[in-house]
């Protein structure tokens, strides 16, 4: 579904160019869920924005559904660290934003929007404004918004990192359920190793400056998963990979 071939991205800067990513090769199969982890500044967000078509690659090629990515696609949805809701729109209005912007029929999506909100535990909040909701609820609205147009690919950039630990666990459990029900392909950037092993089929470990794929770890645990011994083993492996890399680059 997603093919990233030999992609690099250089940012021109005042104090010299920054190579955020170099020679990235990654294939994500249809319905697969891939997590990307790595230290801060290693280019995780850049990778996501390249796949989303928000910025062009300076080398190599990104393909989604077999087509080279030249700009944002309607079948790829994005979710950020912060909810990024429009504060003057109601909850329902925010969920329907992609429908409106992508020129789809609002009437045809209204039921689906309500259904998603119910699934996210937000029934009765359709007419509320975002500031009347807690941070966790706002992020759920953002999740509903990213699902409304039934995207083939969902890109998520640390979607739960601004939330408290409990809400975070709740939401990742919810996401796991959604993954089981839907057939989207997901790329999830996260700082949390637990989240990565819980949600992903494969975990991509990036090294920093320039960002390269250090290792791809397959999480061979059947779903639905819960944080048990087997996942803890994978977690330990990933943690040691991250630490090792830090030591290596310190020299």
């Amino acid at each position: 579904m997603i093919e990233v071939s030999g992609v690099s991205r250089v940012f021109p800067g005042r104090s010299g160019a920054v190579t955020a990513l170099q020679g990235i090769d990654l294939r994500v199969r249809e319905h697969e869920s891939v997590a990307v982890i790595g230290r801060s500044g290693c280019g995780k967000s850049t990778l996501l924005r390249l796949i989303a078509g928000l910025i062009p690659a300076t080398g190599g090629q990104v393909r989604v559904a077999g087509e080279p990515v030249t700009g944002p696609r309607p079948d790829v949805s994005l979710m950020f660290q912060r909810p990024a809701l429009l504060p003057w729109r109601t909850v329902l209005g925010n969920v329907l934003l992609p429908v409106e912007f992508l020129g789809r029929s609002k009437a045809a999506h209204l039921d689906r929007a309500r259904e998603l909100l119910n699934l996210a535990g937000l029934e009765g909040f359709e007419r509320r404004l975002p500031h009347e909701l807690s941070g966790g609820m706002q992020q759920r609205v953002a999740l509903c918004r990213s699902l409304i147009c039934e995207p083939k690919v969902m890109l998520m950039d640390e979607p739960f990192s601004a939330l408290d630990a409990l809400t975070r666990e709740e939401l990742s459990a919810e996401l796991q359920r959604i993954q089981l029900e839907n057939t989207t392909t997901t790329v999830l950037v996260t700082h949390s190793i637990e989240e990565a092993v819980l949600l992903a089929d494969r975990v991509v470990v990036l090294s920093a400056r320039p960002g390269r794929v250090r290792k791809i770890v397959e999480i061979d645990v059947p779903r639905p998963r819960s944080l048990g011994e087997r996942l803890a083993g994978y977690g330990a492996e990933l943690r040691s990979l991250l630490v090792e890399r830090t030591r290596g680059s310190a020299r």
Binding site: R49, A52, G53, L54, G71, P72, P74, V76, S77, L78, F80, A84, L86, L97, P98, F101, L102
Partner: peptide
């Protein structure tokens, strides 16, 4: 918000 609206073309 800018990236969101860009991603929605």
């Amino acid at each position: 918000l800018i990236e969101l609206s860009r991603s929605l073309r």
